[in-house]
Design a protein around this nucleic acid. Sequence first.
DNA 1: CACAGGTCCTAAAACGTTTACGCAAGCGCC
DNA 2: GGCGCTTGCGTAAACGTTTTAGGACCTGTG
Lengths: 353, 353
Amino acid sequence: MPTMNLKELASKLGLSPTTVSRALNGYPEVNETTRDRVMAAAKRHNYRPNARAIRLATGRAMAVGHVMSGLTRNEIMNPIFADFIAGAGEVYSQNGYDMMLSVVSNDSEEAAYRDLASRGAVDGVIVHSVKRHDPRIKVLSDIGLPAVFHGRATGTEAAYNWVDVNNRRAFLRATEFLLDLGHRRIALVNGLEYMDFAIRRRTGYTDALAARGMTADPALMVSDEMTELSGYRAAAQMLDLPDPPTAFLAASMLSGMGVRRAIEARGLQIGRDVSVILFDDDLSYLRNGEDVPIFTATRSSVRHAGRLAAQMVLDLIAAPDTAPRTHLLEAELIIGQSTGPLVHGGAGHADPL
Amino acid sequence: MPTMNLKELASKLGLSPTTVSRALNGYPEVNETTRDRVMAAAKRHNYRPNARAIRLATGRAMAVGHVMSGLTRNEIMNPIFADFIAGAGEVYSQNGYDMMLSVVSNDSEEAAYRDLASRGAVDGVIVHSVKRHDPRIKVLSDIGLPAVFHGRATGTEAAYNWVDVNNRRAFLRATEFLLDLGHRRIALVNGLEYMDFAIRRRTGYTDALAARGMTADPALMVSDEMTELSGYRAAAQMLDLPDPPTAFLAASMLSGMGVRRAIEARGLQIGRDVSVILFDDDLSYLRNGEDVPIFTATRSSVRHAGRLAAQMVLDLIAAPDTAPRTHLLEAELIIGQSTGPLVHGGAGHADPL
DNA sequence: CACAGGTCCTAAAACGTTTACGCAAGCGCC
DNA sequence: GGCGCTTGCGTAAACGTTTTAGGACCTGTG
């Protein structure tokens, strides 16, 4: 008796498969006492309806697809992927859906979506790492597959479903916070600016400066991969300028850690001599301290974003022809030990009072 | 014409569904010219056979399951998960398999496997984060679902399929390397020792010491989560000992980065005053330098392990009743800039020659 | 000429569910 | 007592493939 199926269970009960199916799925047209009998028997023989048959019979895949691309050797994988997936997966599990992950090379991501759709392997997808003018928006709209984008695409006019953090506002607030502390030379260690969120963060930064009649110094703006090494190099170079920054905005925990290292390597103390604010995605393996945050940060849980996006795609699957939905999350500004008021004399230049 | 199906395609061609199916699937009993006709028509109408129907008809799920657990708030997610998944996914894609990811709470992982199996949602699974005496080995053996474990389980006598790195040998070699450089006070900043790999690494470390007639100093051994902060704290505490270590073995890039910070915070130079070797899983977002490695490290690509495990589970699905397979990977010892010969005077204690 | 053995194709039965439709019994009501 | 409604169940047809069992037609051979 490897796998009990509906027909067999029905015959054991002296009922038709129909009635058993209806009993298990909570349909009203079945006597409560028979329903109990069926339920009990199903539990006793630990019957679980075959997922493959359900999918065929109902015409629904009961699955959501996630495509993971960017596998060409020199391109970095998205470090937030795992946490986002974890959040989304929670929601799928709770709703009886499966998560289907496709790993493809960078140039065949579009084909992957078409494939998932035409094979009927998923009922919807979530799209990761949205870029400016992202072509995947049009592709998925053409395919007609319910899709939720994690991030917005600057330069796209068409409407689409997205979940995003207010990246502009996060970095606007962070910049204002530093300005209020007296800092004037504020550096931006940004992510690669074909990524949409990086563009918006820079806008927040420049807008905050502009609001005080200031303009960003190109020498204090860097855009690169968000690694520790990259953050270190950017900060090291800037700190060696004749007029170095007194504060940094870093795009991630990792780049912020690199910035910290460059600062400390110069004998400067973070939070006193140089301030640092970073964007904290609240990744489970890159916690910003334990009880009390170490870095002052704009924080927004990417896992929570995953949950929201998953719920959105499930809603979309249930009601496909509704108007596009959007969900803009606000990052919180949490105060850690990495920021402080501007001290005169600035970074690394001992002031000969 | 939303989705073209086999019957419709067959009628367009004036053939039976059987013949079309056989033509597309490369069966020999079909004329080559008709096969070409079928192929062309399939491409023209971009027909893709419905995955749900295939799965039901063949009785195979054409999918492999991965269960992601450890979602209770205070437990850390496995940072290597994404890279491992990426490697495995490559192999699935190439072989026409799908990857099914289940995200469940820690205490329902066993139920998740039973569920995947009895619903017929997957043909096999890969099990992550193997622990000592791992109960999942017995569970999956009872279920009778092909399973490959990423890691071995110390204390389990039953045979099972696994892919693992030779963690003991990696840390044995690393310790020997440090001993050869003259270091005698070598600290171990290990991962949590209910994880199997952490146990084996400690064994490698103590064995190397024992081979030279030395014994490990408990004050120089720490076992904790593999975060930057945890690495920093462990190293900071040890460096403040009256007889501090002159070299560190760290369990991951992140903990190694924490160790580095503690070293540099004391004005010591890594590679000159204090040596560090870490275990580098070659994660795509935590690269150990770009062209030239920064840390001396024992390196083994977890992505490659993912590929091997995936191939193994596919082989197992194809031939379920073969003897258990195992694959032990050797980590390479790569020389970076974080190690050097012991300088007399030791860490942080200026030698008054 | 009969027959064996390819070659190429079709009809129909799987696979295990869901669901449209139908039907019998029971009940209340005029 | 006939009519309509409700309750509880069964029959059978889907869903879109694969696969089993054949069958028609040709070709070569004795």
